[in-house]
Each structure stands twice: as structure tokens, then as C-alpha cells.
Design a binder for these strands. Structure first.
Length: 238
DNA sequence: CGCGTTTGACCGGCGC
DNA sequence: GCGCCGGTCAAACGCG
């Protein structure tokens, strides 16, 4: 189900080269990014080199449409994966399977809706408002509120990458078609409702899929003392 | 004792 | 209308 969720985000899906600095380089026509590289860089939640990212897959609601940048090292997400096909196509494999790893069926289904906007999951827009029964009426008002979000893939031994922010785990769920449970985190900073989901590829347990939802209302420095100036600068516009 | 994690239960959306 | 599923809550638990 959720496979279709991000599958609908397809127009906003990007593959970035392993080296983040490549983003600032002119891309070949088929892979030209619709957004300024600077913008894309600002959307990165952390220093890729710092956390040892081998490859990146990024989608964002903040960007307007887009093409995918092939990532050679990116393992196959499934039989429909663009990475597996090795060509810059809008096939939803990567996008659709992102939140629902290994969900081949739903990936295919999502591809039929690739032109729709990203409505998100069934409840992501509610934020942290699992309110009392008396407030449930208000919940519907929030329903269509969107949170900017993007997801990317990293090859890492650890599930939770240190992105400079402090996260608190509030749930873990075994999702369909995935061998690994999905973990749910929320930013611990007060008044910051950013959430992220972390899960591992069922086809390659070394690969970690991280999905961020929302915008931080603070800099990473507010959470940790280890954050450097670059972090603050990088996220100030986030 | 405070904070973070775990985990079962619950809820709402969506597809059939 | 019903069942499945993802997302969240919150009590219990663990750890420093």
C-alpha cells in the first residue's frame, strides 16, 4: 500500500551520484536535474562523507518534477528498479519500492499513478497528533497538510545514521514484503515535529532506506554539541 | 530517577 | 462493508 505512496512521488525522485560534489557539475541531458544543485544540497540532512554514504537516492516534495540520476553502485530494488535496468527511466521500481522494500506488486501498481502528486501515507500528515477522541474532528482538517519529505538510500552497517539531530524512536513495525522491521523516529527537539523512518532493504541488508518528513525548526547544533558550523549553515534553509 | 527503547494495541485509510 | 496494512500511542522495561 505504502509502496504506491512514494511511487506517486515519482516526479520528485532523484538519484544523485555517490560523490555529492558531482551535483554541482553539469549533468548529461537525460539526467539533468530540474532544481539548482544548491537546493538539492540543502535538502541533504547530513554530510554524506561524514557518515560514509556510498550512494544516494533522494526524492523531495520541494522540488518540481525531475529525472533520475543513475547510481551505478545502487543495488537492485526489484525487478522494476530503474537502477536494475540501468537506464534513466521513470519506472517506479526505485521509488515505489523505497518505502516498501521488495514489494514488486505494489511497485507496478504505483507506476500507473506516477503523474499524481505525493499525497503521502495514510497517516503521515497527522504528525504527532494522535489526539483524544474529542479532537479527532480536527484531525481531518489537518488531513491534506503536507510535510516536505525525501528519502535516500545508504550503505551502512548501522541503521541510524548520525545526521546531527537527536532522534527518539517511537515505534517499530514489520512491514509487508520486507524482511526487516521499519523503525520510526521523531526529532527530540521541542516544537520540532520532523520524523524519519529507517528500514533495511530486504534484498540487501547492508542498504538502509531513510525517509525524512518535515522540516527542522532548528539547527543540528541545538541538539548536539558535536555539530559544526557547516551543519548549521547547511540546515538553516531546510 | 530520568531518558530512551521495546512492543503490543489501537486507529484510520484504502483496496477489494 | 470488511479486512489488510501502515503509522502511532503508551505502558513496560532497560540502562546509565
Amino acid at each position: 500500500m505504502e509502496g504506491g505512496q512514494l511511487g506517486t512521488c515519482l516526479p520528485n525522485l532523484y538519484f544523485l551520484p555517490p560523490d555529492p560534489h558531482h551535483i554541482s557539475m553539469p549533468l548529461p541531458p537525460p539526467f539533468q536535474l530540474p532544481c539548482q544543485p544548491k537546493l538539492l544540497h540543502h535538502q541533504m540532512p547530513f554530510d554524506q562523507e561524514e557518515v560514509g554514504i556510498h550512494g544516494v537516492m533522494l526524492s523531495s516534495d520541494n522540488c518540481c518534477g525531475g529525472l533520475m540520476y543513475p547510481l551505478p553502485e545502487l543495488p537492485s530494488f526489484g525487478k522494476n528498479s530503474a537502477a536494475a535496468l540501468g537506464k534513466p527511466t521513470t519506472t517506479v521500481g526505485a521509488a515505489g519500492s523505497m518505502p516498501n522494500i521488495g514489494g514488486g506488486e505494489e511497485v507496478t501498481k504505483a507506476s500507473n499513478e506516477s503523474t499524481t502528486t505525493c499525497n503521502g501515507s495514510s497517516t503521515w500528515w497527522r504528525g504527532s497528533t494522535m489526539m483524544a477522541a474529542g479532537e479527532k474532528g480536527k484531525m481531518k482538517i489537518r488531513r491534506k497538510m503536507r510535510e516536505p519529505r525525501f528519502c535516500f538510500q545508504t550503505r551502512s552497517e548501522v541503521d541510524v545514521l548520525d545526521d546531527g539531530y537527536k532522534w527518539r524512536k517511537y515505534g517499530q513495525k514489520v512491514v509487508k514484503n520486507s524482511l526487516h522491521p521499519r523503525s520510526y523516529f521523531r526529532c527530540t527537539h521541542s516544537n520540532c515535529r520532523v520524523k524519519k523512518r529507517v528500514e533495511r532493504l530486504s534484498t540487501d541488508c547492508r542498504m538502509v532506506i531513510t525517509t525524512y518528513e518535515g522540516r527542522h525548526t532548528h539547527s543540528p547544533c541545538d541538539d548536539t554539541n558535536s555539530g559544526d558550523g557547516d551543519h548549521a549553515n547547511c540546515f538553516s534553509s531546510f
